[in-house]
Design a binder for these strands. Structure first.
Lengths: 112, 112
DNA sequence: TTCAAATATGGCTATATTTGCATATATGAA
DNA sequence: TTCATATATGCAAATATAGCCATATTTGAA
């Protein structure tokens, strides 16, 4: 890996952590999950219906988001409810729409 | 791929585009590039020195960011200068620090 | 036109990610 | 305890990504 001679080690570590968070946001299914958790917490079974893939796949997506610090879990009986720990990630959606508009306005304006 | 029965097609397309932008932000080197372009535009050769990997690798990172709508290029002579097209992505850095603080405060507080 | 510098791309390998299936684990109910 | 439901994890296959080397392309200078 690169040495980044011009940067302090602490900054490199910070960029790595930020990259990890961005990576957690970099999958369609995970963005749908985050959007669904905007106002309420939901259990894995509900999110599985929403996403429409295998339950194990959804469980793994949730683990990625939890591991990145974006979600927390809350077990109630035999169900595990996930909720947004850091709602500021929702701001990313706004910025992303801005990027999309700036970049490919013509092909996208009808959906944003 | 999933059908997302509960969602409008337009939303699915939007989430895919947002995921693409997040993916562009999901690599340490690309975050370093964005940070470096915060205040000034820079050519590929300068960014190559900064990152410390092969020039071809940097060129591909820049292509990813450009393709996501985050950077634009500006050729001057035989050099190509890249600059931030959508500075709102810098807000992501702030949110990411918030996520890091909320998630793993103890191991990270000295660097944020 | 010819050469040199800057940048982009083809080809390849190594590694990482996503997914589903099968199964393990955890919890509550009978 | 035994069973059923909910969730997580081991595994393997398919796909995607990152990296480097070699080379193509673009541009300006000689």
């Amino acid at each position: 890996m690169a040495i980044f001679a011009y940067m302090k080690k602490s900054n490199i570590k910070l960029f790595k952590l930020q990259a990890k968070i961005a990576k957690a946001l970099s999958h369609e299914s995970r963005l749908i999950i985050i959007n669904a958790l905007k106002d309420k917490e939901m259990c894995v079974c509900e999110l599985t219906k929403l996403i429409g893939t295998d339950q194990s796949t959804v469980s793994r997506h949730l683990a990625v988001l939890k591991n990145a610090g974006i979600l927390t879990e809350d077990r109630k009986g035999n169900k595990v409810y996930y909720k947004l720990l850091t709602p500021c990630v929702l701001d990313f959606f706004e910025c992303a729409i801005g990027v999309i508009k700036a970049h490919q306005l013509e092909q996208i304006e009808e959906i944003v």
